[in-house]
Amino acid sequence: MASHEVRLEWPTGRTKTVTVREDETVLEAAGRDGIGLPYGCRTGACGTCTGRLLEAAGHESNDEQVLDVDDAFAYRRCQRALKDRHRADGYVLLCVAEPRADCRLAVGPSVHTELVENPWK
């Protein structure tokens, strides 16, 4: 079974690299290595485990280039918590996402808070 190096990056600067097989999700692999990523439903419905793709197969996400997350992951189940705009912005649900390329991901509980904002503010 092929596997990929997935580098997890927290806003604090902490990083961890996990070897994730193609038949396991990033969340499962992180859990196996004792890394506590946030999660909730584990079925792709709730968004608690949301990560953001920063780099895939050597290509960085930046102002000029938005990475297609679907090139970097296959999904065990449909990502129902994400809207089209979230996918276009590189968000990915780590509870259902199985890697198809080496990549870097922004992780931690602050990532899912980026999905919505206070509409009145």
């Binding site: 439903c41 419905a45 709730c46 968004g47 129902r80 918590a81 899912h112 999905l115 919505v116």
Partner: peptide, 11 residues
């Protein structure tokens, strides 16, 4: 639906 309210409130 849970998939609607779980991630947060979207107007």
């Amino acid at each position: 639906a849970p998939k609607t309210y779980y991630p947060g409130f979207d107007l």
